[in-house]
Structure formats: structure tokens, C-alpha cells
Nucleic acid binder design. Structure first.
Lengths: 235, 235
DNA sequence: TTTATTTGTTAGGCAAGCCTAACTTGTATA
DNA sequence: TATACAAGTTAGGCTTGCCTAACAAATAAA
């Protein structure tokens, strides 16, 4: 049985290795993600190595073992199922679900999670558009591009966000955006890539940074199928 | 913000004082309930006193302050709402709900609990028949008698159990009993008060100890209204 | 009322997770 | 290649929540 803290370390490692597009992570990187000091991470790494959940040598890189990885995926699965539940059944807004799901993801009960999944009718994506691992730990590989990649005059549909910070999510809502909303790119400033977009008739200017955090599919794409060369490697 | 452990101490105090029919508890008693050593309880009592959640002097009795009590009731409310949820929506059996609810009761989110309550349509009693405190912390006073109080030849309806141990609950199921089932008392042995009861046509012999742990209402009673002089003082 | 037993307290210790401060190793840059 | 900076490590310390062992107080029994 893993502690709440151990689960969070594994989950953070999964997140980092996914974002890096490799299967390696560093001590500082992990410390930043978890908002603790590198020294603390070092202690924990010894424990996780002892339990054969990570591979790791002094001054080397950290990788998840397959045991560690499957534990991390299980936590991710719970997190995303709970997010979906809160969003769909309890009218939580899009930017509220994360915080509560952070707590719920640590509840230990296989039966509960299986029932939850069934109750939600086996969803494949959470409210942020991220794929939900199935019971076997399989994750749909998800090909995505961002709003920053869409050409002027073209339309796309939002499927997910990259940044889950509350400030970002609130901004997204302010712009009038939500999952499955259509976005039309009206112009792009040469100098700083500032975009003017249209969402449900509402015009907004958004920065490049903002646009890079909005995952989209183009008009002929289907969620879960390739829609560009930009591969979002979750699995 | 209270820790998981602090919440459990307060909840245990509420339970003990309820069972004692007084508002006092002792160190050993609390240690037994929480399955820790008295010395550990002593440490925690100092902390809870510091936080003004309990009143307590050296070698004296422990009582909850109104602040401590309302915290404890909040935990109890969450516990019972989650039990109801698991039982009604996720097909958990009667004896499975407790363990998972023990974890869920510590999730911090007022919105979540309010939505949960609404989702369940403001239930007044949990699957064990125990009253669910409302948002203000009010608990329906519940007058109950037990199966041991029912006269030979009379019928009653089960509304709750006193003992929540898994072994007891499994035994209850084995006898064919569940909430709202009608029980007919066919005979009572003079010597040891052994009862023969009939539930859905099934005859069983049950001990006095067993019978004392089954709360019932008699035929003309309504749950939540007095049905005997035996008062079950939860509030 | 004296003694035995139960109940409660104190002191000192341990593991988990966190910290700071000082150090070492690795790597990028002049 | 020398050096400076970033990344990682170690040592020692803190809090929380638990423990055991020894002791003190209260209560029940003789």
C-alpha cells in the first residue's frame, strides 16, 4: 500500500516524463512539480527505489519502473474519472474540478473506481479533454495541435488544455471558451504572434503563450484520432 | 484546517459521548475506539485543547467544545452521506459502505458535500438507519427500541443497527435482514432470552446480544418519531 | 482505611515528510 | 582547459502521530 505522498511522487514523475517526451526526470524538476525542496525529493527517491517503483542512481536520471508506472497511471485514472464525475454529475465548473479530484484520487477502493467508471458510462476523456486510462492501464494516444498552430482564416475545435493552473483556466472561461467550442482564427500579428479569435461571436485577443496551451482539432478531425504531426505522448 | 487524524479524534469523541449517553469521555475509552495507546491520546488531547476543540483537565474527563462538536458532526454528516451514496448509487452492500466512507469523510469541499446531499435528494437517514445531520449540524433525535424489546407474537420493522462491526453486519445479512424488513418475534426462551424470529418466511434463532443491536420500530411507528420510551440520543 | 486495580500521565524514542545550510558533481561557457 | 553555475547530495533538525516503560492519581475492593 502506497502512502498519499508516494502516490503524488509517482504521479508527478509520470507527468514530467510525459511532458519531456522522454522517460527521464531530474531531482530539481520533480521538486518544482511537487513544490518541495530537492533535498526532500532525494530522501523520497531512496524510499521509492527501495520499493522498486523507480530506477535511479546517484547523480543520474530518474525513471519509473513498470510497477511504478502502473501505480501512477492508476492514480491518474482515478483523478480523471473523478474530474469527469464532478463536472458531469455535480455541476462543478471546469476550473473547480482539479482541486477536489486531487483529494479523491487517493481513495483506496477498486470497487468504487469500477463503479464510478460504469456510472459515467466508460468515458474516454475527462473535462479537460485528457484521455482516461482504462482498467488495464492503457491510455489512448492522443494526437493534438494547439491553437498557436492554426492558420489565419481557419477554424478549429478546442479539445483540451495543457496548463491546468486556476488562473489560466479562469482566463479560458473569460474568453468564452469551453470543450468542443469552435474557434476561428481571424488574424495573427507578425511581431508577437498575438491572435484575434472568435468564439461564439465573441472576439478576443490572446497571446501566443495562451494559444500554446489550448489543444485543438481541426475541422475534419475526431478526438482520439491523429489530426496533425504534433503528437501528445501521454502513453 | 483540521488534519485527518484530528477529525478522527473528534468523531470518536462524538461517538463515545453518544454511546455513553453523557457528554464525557475518558482517555482509555478514546484510545480503545481509535485503536491507539492511551499515551498517544494524551498527546493529542493537549493539541485539541490548545485549539479549543475539547475541554479537558489533567486526570479529568474529556468533553467536546461546541466548536469541536460541530466539526465532529460535519465529519459524521459526510460519512453518512457518502454511505448513502455508495449504497444507493453504486450498489455497495450494506456492510461494505463503512470502510470506504471512512476515507471519503475527510475530503474537504463544502460544495461537494452540498451537491452530494442534493444529488441524493436530502436523505434523512443513512443505509444503517442512522440520522444524517443537516447542513446546520442539526440531527433528528431518534427514538428507538431494539429487537430485544419486542414482545412475543408482535412484529416490528428494522430501522438501524447499533453495532457496525463487519462480523455483525454479515451475520445480519445471513439472517436475511435488511433495512425496513419486517421481523416477527415467534418465541423468547425464558432462560437466555434466545429469540426465534421470522423474516421473509425465514426462521432464525438469535441471541439476546444480537437482538439488542437491531433497532426497530413497531408497526404504527414512523421513522424519526417516538415509538418507545427508549431514546437513542444521537443529538 | 488501607490496598489493589484501573486509569491517566510523563519521558524518551521512532518513522514519515518536510526543511536549511553546506557540500559535491556535472556541465556549459569563456 | 579552467571556471562558474546549475543540479544533486548529505547532515542535521523540525513536526506529527505513533510507540514503550515507568510513574502518579483515582477508584474499587478488602
Amino acid at each position: 500500500m502506497l502512502s498519499y505522498t508516494e502516490e503524488n511522487y509517482l504521479k508527478a514523475l509520470l507527468k514530467i516524463t510525459f511532458e519531456n517526451g522522454s522517460n527521464e526526470a531530474g531531482t530539481n524538476e520533480l521538486a518544482n512539480t511537487l513544490v518541495v525542496k530537492p533535498a526532500t525529493v532525494n530522501d523520497m527517491l531512496k524510499k521509492l527505489k527501495e520499493k522498486e517503483l523507480v530506477e535511479y542512481e546517484k547523480y543520474g536520471k530518474i525513471t519509473l519502473t513498470s510497477e511504478g508506472r502502473s501505480n501512477a497511471i492508476e492514480v491518474l485514472r482515478k483523478h480523471r474519472l473523478w474530474e469527469t464525475f464532478l463536472y458531469e454529475k455535480f455541476d462543478f465548473s471546469w476550473d473547480e474540478v482539479h482541486e477536489v479530484a486531487e483529494q479523491l484520487e487517493h481513495i483506496q477502493s477498486t470497487k468504487l473506481i469500477d463503479k464510478l467508471e460504469k456510472f459515467l458510462d466508460y468515458p474516454e476523456f475527462d473535462p479537460h479533454g485528457d484521455p482516461i486510462p482504462n482498467k488495464k492501464g492503457e491510455i489512448k494516444v492522443h494526437f493534438k495541435k494547439t491553437l498557436a498552430d492554426v492558420g489565419v482564416g481557419n477554424s478549429c475545435r478546442m479539445v483540451a488544455v495543457k496548463d491546468n493552473s486556476s488562473s489560466f483556466l479562469q482566463y479560458v472561461v473569460k474568453v468564452g471558451l469551453g470543450i468542443n467550442n469552435e474557434i476561428k482564427v481571424l488574424s495573427r500579428q507578425e511581431y508577437d504572434a498575438l491572435l484575434v479569435i472568435e468564439v461564439n461571436g465573441q472576439l478576443s485577443s490572446v497571446s501566443q503563450k495562451f494559444a500554446e496551451n489550448i489543444f485543438v482539432v481541426c475541422q475534419n478531425c475526431i478526438i482520439g484520432k491523429p489530426c496533425s504531426k504534433i503528437k501528445c505522448e501521454i502513453s
